[in-house]
Each structure stands twice: as structure tokens, then as C-alpha cells.
Design a protein around this nucleic acid. Structure first.
Lengths: 263, 263
DNA sequence: GAGTGGTCTAGACCACTGT
DNA sequence: CAGTGGTCTAGACCACTCC
């Protein structure tokens, strides 16, 4: 009663896990060859390979073959970056320029990361208006950031950050993408407006990626994305920034430290 | 050149999203009927349905049909539960018994949740030994908790919690599953040993589920699981508990609030 | 051009669900 | 039992990659 495609998948998984016959980066035998070897038809082999793809063990490359996936560099992000960033927001520009929060999280230098930003004006939809506590349709500045390792092609995150336009308008530089990357990040930008943050609330979920996200983040197979919504609240209790970050689920590790008051 | 299965998937997705022809819980037409309607073979229809399944839009039920998925109750968990739990650890037993941290997170009463616990003794593998800072093979108490809504079948989380046996041995009740659910939770248990927590470090990732997890959590299709490792550190800087929680990615929302020191 | 995976066909038979 | 989805076959032809 054992299903053929599961048996084949088990067998190949074994070979990959042991790592002797099939190492990361290796090409698997062609599907026709596997069909011949296992004495099953090609569609059945493909079904087995589909299982391994969903598990993130192999990667299908059209016209080239099926490959054992390379382990990808882990992306780490902590919530201690927020305090770190706050502390730096008042530092000199030279200090702020030397390194950013993502480098702080990942332990890399500014040269290892490539960073892009786009700015545009939009209007608050119902969801964003609710979070900001402003009327629907309020003008917002939408900023899209992509970050990737210099040595890899695909970015490891795409972030959409929203600010209320009228709040940041007093400093025209904050409406200009040419000023990115802003030394010290968003908290330093807000500091130019006299805004101090009190707390940051982050909400994490996981879901299947959309087609665009699959392409943009270089995902493969059944890998999910993690979504992180970061809401920044200033010392007056006002929501001043909302940021939606999409992260590849298979290579991201988020760490949150909660300090407890003493008895 | 548009691929047939994508066109079919788009069309069905449309019907589901509009929610007029196909509402949550509805059965889709049989695959043979769809094949006839769209003038494609059954395998092609199945491929299209596979896309929708991976997106979590439909659910395949063997022998019954393909169904539009019912929206599931969201599971929420915050990091403020930790301070809340700490504050309660010293309360009277009656107070502690009245409600738990999960009820605090979800806003439900103790009667809405069903809870089970198993205890067993194991030995620290390399990973756990490293986190606890003890030698590999050190005896541990492993506790497996499952929590589910009374009105649903599948649990919404499975947690494996580890304690160093010799640390908790002074209170034999902590080695006995019959004492569960312990009023006030783990922090109240540790309080009986004179242990006070200083901070909790939580690490979140997402990955495809194993076969067992798919069954246990009632997952379907390409839904990922979120994994949360919670490490509890006491006021002496010692790791006193490690807890690995597996959560269904499609229905879980984790919230972390980071409070920032004032300038 | 040779070799690879991607899409699709038109069936057969099995396993599960409900009546 | 009838109806459903699950597995599997043995091909055909297309699209992509690399030489």
C-alpha cells in the first residue's frame, strides 16, 4: 500500500540528508533517468520531486535540472535594534553613517549590504488609517526599501514604510528618496522633526507568498513568507510610522527579548 | 501562451474571492465536471486546484470533494504575557487558577480552551545542552503541552518545554504531570523553587511542516508552521527553561512590544 | 542541437465517503 | 452502491539552458 512517490521521495531525501551521494548544489539525475532507475513513469518521479521541493530540499531549474538546495545565509533581526537605533539617533552624522541597524543585527559591514529606496505619495486605505488613527484618504509617504547581500542576487527583505505626509512635511528632505540611505535610519529622520519614540509594536505572521513575492525574494517551492508589521509610537502615544516587512520564511530568524520587572 | 492551469486557477480564485458563487465551506464542482466545463483534462484541473490549495484557498477532502476553506479563528500571542505571568506568580492560588496566560492573550475564558500535558524524562542533546549551558546528556524534564479551542478539533499549538531535572527536583510536584495545569504557569512553578526570571528571549522562524505536524495541527496544503523558541533566563543569568512551540502559520499572529528608554 | 524540465492528454485503477 | 478525489501510466509537444 506504500505510495510510490513517497517511497521515491523518502529514498532521495535519505541520499540528500546523508550528504554523501548528493551534496548541496549537486544536480540530481534527470527525471527520465530517475524514472528508469525506480521503474516508475516520469510524472510519478515528478510528484516525488514535488514533495522534496515543498520541503525546501531541492530546487527545480527549468532546462537545467533539479538541484540540491544550497543552504542560504540566515537573516537575523532582533528587537534590540530599536533601542540601539534610538541611542544613535542623536549621535553625530559621521557616527550614524558608519553603520546601520541591519548591519548591527547581522554583524556585517555596510559594504556587504546593498540597499535601495523608492518614495511615493499615496493615501491611507482603511487599514492604515485605522492604525494611524487618521481619516481614510489622508496623504501618506510610502517608502519601499529592498536590502540584499552583495554576494546574493535576491533581496532578503522588502519593506514598505508609511509616514503621514503632513507630519514629516516640515523637513522636505524626508520626502526625497535621494537622501537615502539616511544615516541612522527612521528614528534619526524622526528626530529631525523633534519626534521621540516611546515603544515599537511588532506583529509577525506567516503565509504563502504571492507570485510577485516569489520572484522578488527568489523563493522556491512551498516556502512561506513571514510578514512583520512594525508600528512606531511616539512619547505622546501617536502612531508615527507603520512598516510592513516581507521576509523569506526559510532563512529568517527573528529574536525578541522581553525584560521583566523585578519582584 | 498563457498556461491553462493558471488561467483556470485565476478563474476559480476570482469566483472564491468574490464570494458570490463560492462561499466558505462550499463544495466546488467535481474535478470531472470542471474538466468538462473548462475543456481540459482532469490532471490539468487538478494542477489548477493544487495552486489554490497551496494558497490556502481550498481544501481537498478525499472522497468528498474540494471545498472553499473556512476562515479559522486567529491565534494571538503577545510578549506582554510574560510580565503579566510574572506578576501573577506570587498571587494566591485562587487568583492564579482563575485564568491563564493564553486566556489573557486570546481574551477567552478558561472553559473555552482545552489543554493537555505529558511529562517525561530525557537527556539534553547537543542543541539543548548548548542553550542551557550544561553537559550533553544532562537529565531534563520534557513537558509536551497541547492547547485547542473547545469548538475546534485540532490544537492550535504544540509546545515542548524543557527544564533541567536536578534544578526542579527539590519540588517533586514539578515532575508530576498530574499537577497540570499548574495555576499561574511555568513562572509560578519556578517560583516554588525560589527562581525569579529576569528576561525571556524568543526566536521566531517559519518552515514547511513535517508530516506529523500537518496531521497534529490540522494543516492543509502548503501552509507553513511558525516555530517559536522561548528561552527563560533567571536573575542570575542562568537559562532555566527552554520551550519550543509549533504554531500553524496561517492562523497565528505574534505581537512583541519593545519599550524604549527616554532620551 | 542535445538535453533538460514544463505542460498537457486520455485514459486506468484504487481508496475514501456517504447513502 | 455511486460519486468523489488519489495514484499512476505512456506518451506528445513546448520552453529553457548550455554547448
Amino acid at each position: 500500500m506504500a505510495k510510490a512517490y513517497e517511497k521515491i521521495a523518502d529514498d532521495l531525501r535519505q541520499l540528500i540528508r546523508q550528504g554523501e551521494e548528493l551534496k548541496p548544489g549537486d544536480r540530481l539525475p534527470a527525471e527520465t533517468v530517475l524514472a528508469d532507475r525506480y521503474r516508475y513513469s516520469v510524472p510519478t518521479i515528478r510528484q516525488a520531486l514535488g514533495v522534496l521541493q515543498a520541503e525546501g530540499l531541492i530546487e527545480k531549474r527549468h532546462g537545467r535540472g533539479n538541484f540540491v538546495r544550497m543552504p542560504r545565509r540566515l537573516v537575523q533581526r532582533t528587537n534590540e535594534r530599536h533601542q540601539w537605533e534610538k541611542d544613535r539617533a542623536k549621535a553625530t552624522e559621521a557616527e550614524r553613517r558608519s553603520t546601520g541597524a541591519t548591519e548591527h543585527d547581522t554583524g556585517l559591514g555596510v559594504d556587504d549590504l546593498i540597499f535601495s529606496a523608492e518614495y511615493q505619495e499615496t493615501h491611507a486605505d482603511e487599514g492604515l488609517a485605522g492604525v494611524f488613527g487618521v481619516p481614510t484618504g489622508t496623504p501618506l509617504v510610502e517608502r519601499v526599501y529592498r536590502t540584499r547581500y552583495r554576494v546574493e542576487d535576491a533581496p532578503f527583505n522588502v519593506a514598505r514604510s508609511y509616514l503621514v505626509r503632513d507630519v514629516v512635511a516640515p523637513n522636505p528632505d524626508l520626502l526625497d528618496a535621494a537622501c537615502e540611505p539616511w544615516p541612522g535610519g527612521t528614528q534619526a529622520q524622526l528626530h529631525t522633526l523633534g519626534i521621540e519614540l516611546d515603544r515599537i509594536v511588532e506583529t509577525v505572521s506567516a503565509r504563502p507568498p504571492t507570485v510577485e513575492e516569489t520572484e522578488e525574494l527568489g523563493l522556491t517551492g512551498g516556502v512561506a513568507v513571514m510578514t512583520l508589521r512594525k508600528v512606531s509610537i511616539d512619547v505622546d502615544g501617536r502612531v508615527v510610522e507603520v512598516s510592513d516587512v516581507v521576509l523569506p520564511g526559510d532563512r529568517t530568524e527573528l529574536t525578541f527579548t522581553t525584560r521583566l520587572a523585578r519582584w
